[in-house]
Design a protein around this nucleic acid. Structure first.
Length: 892
RNA sequence: GCGCGCAUAGUUCAGUUGGUUAGAACGCUAUCUUCACACGGUAGAGGUCACUGGUUCGAAUCCAGUUGCGCGCACCA
């Protein structure tokens, strides 16, 4: 930061950004003090997988959180952003297994469980949490002293405590149930981890002969490989085709086992042949029927979905190979009726990427119904608000149809289930430590349950486990409940709903007040970002090329609420160019030297010293402050980006800064005052922009001298709007702003005329302005200095009915007619054509309004102010039209 | 099957309670290297707001239906 050296023309973000992040972190600006008297504002980060690396999705998500937090920090809240990572059971275990395979050609079964878990910890310490470091490059103001990991001792303690309490309450139970089994992971998974995809398959029709030799019944199946486990054929009790068959038996081909024909309402008469083979151990619906009819459950498969000894001739075959073999065998036996093409949904394991196998196994479950009730109420009653709120419907549907949660996983990496089995009698004891003595048989040796808990069983406690629950820490007291959760709608069931349930249960309170659901980021062709398509840019490359501020600004700017985003790196030009624009505003300003220390105010400026442009920009800035504040309070992130961009670029730079140039060139009388007002605006919008673009705003605040070297914009106060009375005393009113808009219209009309005659925008001309009203005359006269500059006028005459001698160009606008003497330049025919064009436009517009007003119903029923506004337009445009026609007449 | 979105300029999108001559960015055309910025300025071209009907004095906006696309949930073997 050298004072003397001029700033380069283009902003170079990389050095600035790394410099500031380091300073902020070293000075402890991100650290939250639980003992401060300030009102807390807390966000817990959605913990990314410890194996993860930063994606654009994270950039969006974390930038949104950072914006909220930086905004609240400036507003004086005690801001606490808890970062951390998730141990991600399956993902992490798989990663380490892959590494072991690659480096040592070992599997986890080549070592003990403890050895393997030690390897995972080793991997985690060495390679884990890359994403946490990457978050710093995009400016995330996390309280790094509070970084947590879901397997930290404290959090593990919380998990154990929760399990035990729920078990003691009778909400956790163990039982043999049909679960979604992933043969790749060799573990159960929850319903939410099954992804259904449509697939083209076959529907095989098999003949099952009646035991009495009276022909056969035809059953249809999509899963021939399970037929060896059939223990019945079911028909609908009201199906007349089969009434006399119910109670008979059929011979199961291949196995030559006799199985009954039973009646069950579940069977639909219209589908297939109306007769269904029942395999209770391999299909959820068949399982239910098996229970109802007390059928035998024959498990055909091993953990890896190869066929076991119950599969007769197919022992040892993989389930896919077995399918082919069964089909071939049935053909051979003449038992194949027909084969149809059939499209159906197949459930895949989200992590294992293979079809799930419904499987009967011993698992731990959590009863959800009682937990769901208060959690649903909290959302329906609006104590927790979803943004956009349509997600309430999805949430409600899920909560009202919630099923028990299978929480056990047959993995090695994760929280062990605190259940112990007596080695002698098998008694189950759920306890905080290994029991000393069996309560039943007195035996003193126990074995802990080998299973671990679903990863989400730790993340659902995140909002309070990070504050050391079940300890009643001062942090927990201060920072819980949190304010806002920012996350993707894809984990509304996995995570959001469950956090609400656990908080209601264990904290007796909501975990957060607002949930903001982010957009999904797609590529510019609308495809999802994916590794295989290679269409997912590395955010770090983007930061390198465009800067973190530019990426942050761009991604928020293009992200509409509740809609997907189409992203391409190209778009970061929006943010980069905007940063350069800001940079150059300061370069321009610094031509006058640094500002005095402190955030500029308007205190002590004589309101009489305000030029019309000053009054206007003060008014517009005030509006922007209000919009930014309410926009942030209401999660309208794209709007606030557009708003501040519009203010800075199209209002401040395009008009206000231009109006200041005479003052900056020493050609204005009250130059110092103008610079103070300029600084007031600059100081305000740097702070308004700080939550979105933290780096460049701190850099520029220092360049300007608003803050001392050892200080930061992070410690500043969010700008407050000026009250209406004070504003009015400054002459900064809405009416004044309207007049200024009209002035801009006049200037544009003159520029357009220059353009049509190919006169350079800066070539000095003698310009005559004839205002149409006294008010306009007063205003334009008062503003003549700025006007002269904005119009590049050699001389400027502002006077009612003034007009130069000789041929001239005419620019008609609402508040004035401007004339430029154009002897020798003007082409009368062209001038008439220009005017004719304008005449046509005005005439067309007038016609449309007249039509509206001639509608009696409109005049009678529309609100008076609407009708009056239309009438006023008629007067305004008729007057304008008259001036255009008068001018035309002069040339014809 | 049930539910939820989306369809506006060549492209990507705004348009918050129905009333502005429907906006922005990128791209395009013309012009300017003028001492903040060519990552820029100035001027401009470009839209039957998917379709059909309804409500209304008035519809891009509200309602119903149609078409097309996307997503979620549940499923018939």
């Amino acid at each position: 930061m050298s004072d003397e050296q001029a700033l380069s023309k283009a902003y170079e973000p990389s050095e600035v950004e790394s410099k500031w992040y380091k300073i902020w972190e070293e000075r402890g600006y991100f650290h939250a003090n639980p003992e401060s008297g300030k009102i807390p504002y807390t966000i817990v980060i959605p913990p990314p997988n410890v194996t993860g690396i930063l994606t654009l999705g994270h950039v969006l998500n974390n930038t949104l959180q950072d914006i909220l937090l930086r905004f609240e920090r400036l507003r004086g809240r005690e801001v606490c952003w808890v970062p951390g990572t998730d141990h991600a059971g399956i993902a992490t275990q798989a990663k380490v297994e892959a590494a072991l395979k690659k480096e040592h050609n070992l599997t986890r079964h080549d070592m003990t469980r403890d050895e393997f878990v030690a390897k995972v910890w080793e991997w985690k310490e060495k390679y884990g949490g890359v994403i946490i470091r990457q978050l710093r490059t995009i400016g995330s103001s996390c309280d790094w002293e509070r970084e947590r990991f879901t397997m930290d001792p404290g959090l593990s303690k919380a998990v154990q405590e929760v399990f035990i309490r729920l078990y003691e309450k009778g909400l956790i139970y163990k039982g043999k149930r049909m679960v979604n089994w992933c043969p790749k992971l060799r573990s159960a998974i929850s319903d939410e981890e099954v992804i259904y995809t449509e697939e083209k398959g076959k529907l095989w029709h098999f003949r099952y002969p009646y035991a009495d030799g009276s022909g056969y019944v035809v059953v249809a199946t999509t899963r021939p490989e399970t037929m060896m486990g059939d223990t019945a054929v079911a028909v609908n009790p009201s199906d007349e085709r089969y009434t006399d068959k119910i109670g008979k038996t059929v011979i199961l081909p291949i196995m030559n086992r006799e199985i009954p024909i039973i009646a069950d309402e579940y069977v639909e008469k219209e589908f297939g042949t109306g007769a269904v083979k029942i395999t209770p151990a391999h299909d959820p619906n068949d399982y239910e029927i098996g229970l109802r009819h007390n059928l035998e459950f024959i498990n055909l498969m091993n953990e890896d979905a190869t066929m076991n000894e119950n599969a007769g001739p197919f022992v040892g075959l993989d389930r896919n190979k077995c399918r082919e073999a069964v089909v071939a065998k049935m053909e051979e036996l003449g038992m194949m009726e027909k084969i149809e093409d059939y499209t159906h949904q197949v459930g895949y394991s989200e992590r294992g990427k293979v079809p799930v196998e419904p499987r009967l196994s011993d698992q731990w479950f959590l009863k959800m119904e009682t937990l769901a009730k208060p959690a649903l109420q909290a959302v329906l009653e609006g104590r927790i608000q979803f943004h956009p709120d349509r997600w309430v419907k999805t949430y409600r549907h899920w909560m009202e149809n919630i099923k028990d949660w299978c929480i056990s996983r047959q993995l090695w990496w994760g929280h062990r289930i605190p259940a112990y089995y007596c080695d002698k009698c098998g008694e189950v004891v759920v306890a905080r430590e290994t029991p000393a003595k069996c309560p039943k048989c007195g035996h003193d040796h126990f074995t802990q349950d080998p299973d671990v808990l679903d990863t989400w069983f730790s993340s659902w406690l995140w909002p309070f486990s990070v504050f050391d629950w079940p300890k009643e820490s001062i942090e927990l007291k201060k920072f819980f409940p949190t304010q806002t959760l920012v996350t993707g709608p894809d984990i509304i069931f996995f995570w959001v709903a469950r956090m609400i349930m656990s908080s209601m249960e264990f904290m007796g309170d909501i975990p957060f007040k607002d949930v903001y659901f982010t957009s999904i980021i797609r590529d510019d062709k609308g495809r999802k970002m994916s590794k295989s398509l290679n269409n997912s840019p590395d955010p770090l490359d983007v930061v390198k090329e465009y800067g973190a501020d530019a990426l942050r600004f761009t991604i928020i700017y293009i992200a509409p609420i509740g809609q997907d985003i189409r992203y391409s790196n190209e778009k970061c030009k929006i943010g980069r160019n905007f940063a350069t624009k800001l940079w150059n505003v300061v370069r321009f300003r610094l031509s006058q030297g640094k500002a005095p220390l402190g955030w500029p105010t308007l205190d002590g400026i004589d309101p009489k010293a305000f030029r019309p442009d000053d009054q206007w920009i003060i008014y517009e800035l005030n509006e922007t402050i209000k919009e930014m504040t309410t926009g942030l309070e209401n999660f309208r992130f794209d709007e606030i980006c557009k708003g501040i961009y519009e203010f800075i670029w199209n209002k401040f730079c395009d008009w206000y800064l231009e109006s200041c140039k005479p003052a900056f060139n020493g050609k204005a009388e009250n130059g110092d005052t103008i610079i103070r007002i300029f600084d007031y605006c600059l100081g305000a919008f740097l702070r308004l922009l700080h939550p979105i673009m933290p780096f460049i705003t701190d850099e520029l605040a220092h360049q300007m001298g608003f803050v001392a070297e050892e200080d930061s914009i992070m410690k500043a106060e969010w700008p407050k709007p000026i009250d209406d009375a004070t504003l009015a005393s400054f002459g900064a009113t809405a009416a004044h702003a309207e007049l200024t808009e009209a002035k801009c219209e006049l200037i544009r009309a003159v520029r357009a005329m220059r353009a049509s005659y190919n006169i350079a925008t800066n070539s000095p001309l003698d310009i005559y302005i004839a205002p149409t009203t006294e008010e306009a005359a007063e205003f334009l006269t008062r503003d003549s200095a700025a006007l002269k500059s904005l119009l590049s006028a050699a001389t400027l005459t502002v006077k009612e009915n003034c007009k130069p001698e000789g041929p001239c160009g005419t620019a008609v606008s609402t508040i004035a007619t401007a004339y430029i003497p154009l002897a020798g330049v003007i082409d009368l025919d062209a001038e008439v054509k220009r005017l004719e064009k304008q005449e046509a436009e005005i005439t067309k517009y007038l016609e449309s309004i007249r039509k509206k007003l001639s509608n009696q119903n409109f005049v009678a029923r529309a609100p008076k102010e609407i009708v009056d506004a239309e009438k006023a337009k008629i007067t305004e445009f008729e007057e304008k039209l008259a001036r255009v026609r008068e001018q035309m007449k002069a040339y014809k």
